[in-house]
Simulated assay, not measured.
Amino acid sequence: MARIDPAPNAPQGPVIERRSGITLWRQIEQSIEADIVGGRAVSGSRLPTEAELACRFGVNRHTVRRAMEELERRGLVRIEQGRGSFVAEDVIDYRIGPRTRFSEVIARNNRAPSGRILSIAEVQASDAAAAALKLRRGRRLWCVERLGLADGVPVAYALHHFPRARFPGLAEALARGGTLTRALAACGLADYARATTRVTARLPTPREAEHLRQPRNRAVMVCENVNVDQDRVPVEYCVVLYPAGRVQLVFEF
């Protein structure tokens, strides 16, 4: 049987055999799967291009593409238009309960949480925000655009809305660094709890897809959250986008 050895610098996995009774694309699929399962291709890492894999296995790119499509269907890899193919990350269990804090949720998944404030702006309350916060439409709000990461990978893109009249120093508190929870504590809100969460799904906008580092044709889960203080007064209306391939929502009661 003819044997196709991988290139010297390629991950070492099973070689493919012609005339073995197993299609070439299936053997390529099994070889790449072995690299992933064996830890030679780590979670989140970029895989070789179709051209590189075709050279490695001595086949045409259509054969490689068929193998990659099957690996994506099985959830072992994710293919991003214009960026390449990546080993699929372990899905994060994002637990939503009465007290949901991003850093705590990510840490419970044995990941390193981090956040990045993208912008802080003063805006007029939209219909949705006004209804959620029980304010008149057009009232002034702080809108905090934030990206949440786990091990440096984006897992949440959020727009947080807070009543400006209640938290006049929020922008300054956030500018000093730290988490949203600490900034709110500095503004007099010691604790808050989740009142409602509404979940839908859609395709991301170009801006959202760019921040989440995912293709526009891959769905995101959209959570509209309302948080309240100890007197059940709404203090935050938040819209959070989670990439469906990296996060699954778990509701705890």
Rank of each mutant, 00 (worst) to 15 (best):
G97V: 07
A41G: 00
A34K: 03
A219F: 13
T197K: 01
Y242A: 04
P154E: 08
T196G: 02
L249E: 07
S114H: 04
R137Q: 13
V59Q: 00
Q124D: 12
G84V: 09
R140H: 06
I117T: 14
P215G: 12
I32A: 06
P215I: 13
T197M: 14
P243F: 03
R182G: 06
E224V: 09
S43N: 03
E208K: 04
P8D: 14
E33C: 09
P11G: 11
Q214N: 09
K134V: 13
E252D: 10
V155I: 15
R26F: 03
W142K: 01
E33R: 15
P206T: 09
W25L: 01
I36W: 01
A112T: 15
R111L: 12
S114R: 03
R246K: 12
E236K: 01
E236N: 14
W142T: 06
L24S: 05
Y242C: 01
R46E: 14
E252W: 04
Q30E: 15
M1Q: 09
N217P: 01
S31W: 07
K134F: 09
T49L: 11
R65D: 08
A165K: 10
L180T: 05
L133Y: 00
A54G: 07
V59D: 01
N217H: 13
R61H: 07
I16Q: 03
R18D: 07
L135E: 13
L203R: 09
S126D: 07
M221W: 06
V64D: 02
P8W: 08
V235A: 04
D90K: 14
G75E: 08
R198L: 11
G148T: 03
V37G: 08
G84D: 11
P234N: 05
R108C: 14
N60K: 10
C143N: 09
